[in-house]
């Protein structure tokens, strides 16, 4: 039997909002480690990997590893029925074909439950090796989202270039071109406002902007975003969820013809 009680239920809501437009159907895996998902978008260009560690839950019971196939857009619809401060409990019976979502208001005066049918989803699981990246940029997530949105008004691709000068985001389109440079900035009042660049070697990679823009839907989950870049490798765009887990997006680069 599975019973997971998440006091900060809004986390699950935000996670679904972050991935529902990228992935249609996916398996949520539950094990002693936590509640996780790995899935690719339909064109296999992007991959999302998320984890809510078991410690993130007030009560975490998962008797055996279980994989639950769900339509993410329907799951997002169900989660939208929860209040912003609701406690969310997920329940499933062993061998059952449904997942129950229970929403409790903070003062316990309203309790709702929604049952969703599980689906059989044939999904491919990819092994992602631990890699030393040539450059790692940590910056405010809202700033990154703003840059991606601004550039998407100009072009379809984003070149991310890290040098010792800083990180440069560039695009080019029919109306012209744009470059936005962010320099390392650690002299800020709040650590979440810092931009930190760790660079082993300069690196430039080009990506489809619409995917990067879609990843920024995870912005409400974290004040900071981390971009990990290496030549000829997918970029990793990571939003850490406090001490509780993460959501990582992997995006394959575009290369010159």
């Amino acid at each position: 039997m599975l019973e997971l009680r998440l006091v900060q239920g809004s986390l699950l809501k935000k996670l679904l909002e972050a991935i529902k437009d990228l992935v249609t159907d996916a398996n949520f895996d539950c094990s002693a480690t936590g509640f996780s998902l790995q899935a690719m978008d339909s064109s296999h260009v992007a991959l999302v990997s998320l984890l809510l560690r078991s410690e993130a839950f007030e009560h975490y019971r998962c008797d055996r590893n279980i994989s639950m196939g769900l339509n993410l857009s329907n799951m997002a619809k169900v989660l939208r029925c929860s209040g912003p401060d609701d406690i969310i409990t997920l329940k499933a019976d062993d061998g059952g074909d449904s997942l129950t979502f229970m929403f409790e208001s903070p003062n316990q005066d309203k309790i709702a439950d929604f049952e969703m049918k599980l689906m059989d989803i044939d999904s491919e699981h990819l092994g992602i090796p631990d890699t030393e990246y040539q450059a790692i940029v940590r910056m405010p997530s809202a700033e990154f989202a703003r840059i991606c949105k601004d550039l998407s008004g100009i072009g379809d691709t984003i070149a991310i270039s890290v040098t010792k000068e800083g990180v440069k985001f560039s695009t080019r389109g029919d109306i012209g071109s744009a470059n936005i440079v962010c320099r390392q900035n650690t002299s800020v009042d709040k650590p979440e406002d810092a931009t930190i660049i760790e660079m082993e070697e300069p690196v430039t990679l080009t990506f489809a902007l619409r995917y990067i823009n879609s990843f920024t839907k995870a912005t409400p989950l974290s004040n900071q975003v981390t971009l990990s870049l290496s030549s000829d490798l997918p970029v990793v765009v990571e939003y850490k969820i406090a001490e509780m887990g993460y959501i990582r997006f992997y995006l394959a680069p575009k290369i010159d013809e």
């Binding site: 296999h44 260009v45 992007a46 990819l126 691709t157 080009t206 394959a252």
Partner: peptide, 14 residues
């Protein structure tokens, strides 16, 4: 502009 690579070209199925 450019050729879009696929994520499966980088990571192996487990």
């Amino acid at each position: 502009r450019g050729v879009q690579l696929s994520i499966t070209e980088f990571y192996k199925s487990t």
